[in-house]
Nucleic acid binder design. Structure first.
Lengths: 201, 201
DNA sequence: AAACTTACTAAGCGCTTGCTTAGTAGTACA
DNA sequence: TGTACTACTAAGCAAGCGCTTAGTAAGTTT
């Protein structure tokens, strides 16, 4: 048996747990954490209100699990994109492309991840802030490296990095599946805009 | 007496009404519409919970008033910036500069304006959506005009306009008063980034 | 000074909230 | 076949919610 991952993911309880998480993502994205009731989540998962507490400690824990896995995914993706090339231009193009694809394709969860932070407990918020800091720092350092190497030309690398983050994060607010633009299409265009922002000739 | 504006703005009731609105902006920005109670708002305004209903119909009406005045202000500002010059480059620089200054300086209210739309009643939401549409359309048409005139160079003006909007709107999420960057400083830099995005040489 | 208006509050109503308790079918192993 | 465990639910509790009602003190008008 594939002890490391498989067994832990396929028991009946784990399937139900995941169904509750998915229902929570949809509800939090649509109405916000405080606008969502535990009854909403349980009903969307086809369970009684009490079943939520069989599988999760609290409503806030659901938000924390969503937030942590979302940030983990983005951090790893950014790190992988940066490690994929020594050339800042190639690396930045890939960072922005992947960041944008994720924020558009998973706009439902990235919306929760980016706009419901204040509903986390102080302890969980501190942990998530640390992940966010590492994501922001990685992108900032990439822009700074490009400037240092002379391939990028921008008066303030920190501000350029802030702008690049905004382009991706704001997709959680405005992206719609039926809007006529695919995540990959937006990603390709935004990657070129990113290079313009950092002053690649 | 200055019947048109003055009397209506300085009566005791109007001062209290404004104090409640200000308290609502702060509370909604900090904890969201559903995370804020009418008792929170009344207490922040130094009043009893019942006083809120002397001056406003409902908690949702407070959100609507905040949202409408915020969108009105931005729409007028964008229209004024566009009308200020026939040169697309000059006009866009001013549009983005002013848009960014507003979203940074008034980050508390723009946060409510941009992220609490789903808490509005269907009727109010429809009205606000119309204002948002006019803001987006104005910026999009400016970018398209620049491309048509040959001063801008971008493969998809609609997507460039979406990116410009994101740069401003996302300030409501990340801008902090104590962050070391003034609204004007960010606005000046973002205006130059905007010109790069639309391909001004 | 009586009559009326304005700007409020104390109290609380009906409902919903997050979460708990006590219990029960269905399955797994002995 | 009996025993123990897993995965649930029905019912409900205390607290908090948006909002209302009934009343009052302090002006303002006549």
């Amino acid at each position: 048996m594939d002890a490391l991952t498989d067994t832990a993911e396929h028991s009946r309880a784990d399937v139900t747990r995941a169904r509750l998480l998915k229902a929570a993502v949809s509800a939090f994205a649509e109405r916000g954490f405080h606008g969502t009731t535990t009854r909403d989540i349980a009903a969307a998962a086809g369970l009684s209100p009490a079943a939520l507490y069989v599988h999760h400690k609290s409503k806030e824990e659901l938000l924390y699990l969503i937030s942590r896995s979302g940030h983990d995914h983005v951090l790893r993706q950014v790190q992988a994109a940066i490690a994929s090339s020594d050339d800042p231009t190639t690396a930045l193009r890939r960072v922005v492309h992947d960041f944008v694809v994720t924020h558009a394709r998973d706009h439902t969860s990235t919306r929760v991840v980016n706009y419901e932070l204040s509903a986390l407990s102080p302890e969980h918020l501190a942990e998530i802030r640390e992940l966010r800091h590492r994501i922001e720092q990685a992108i900032r350092q990439l822009v700074e490296a490009g400037v240092t190497e002379g391939v990028f030309d921008t008066p303030d690398p920190r501000m350029a990095a802030a702008a690049l983050l905004s382009l991706g994060i704001d997709l959680g607010r405005w992206y719609r599946d039926d809007g006529g633009w695919s995540p990959e299409h937006i990603a390709a265009q935004y990657a070129e805009m990113a290079l313009r922002i950092v002053g690649v000739p």
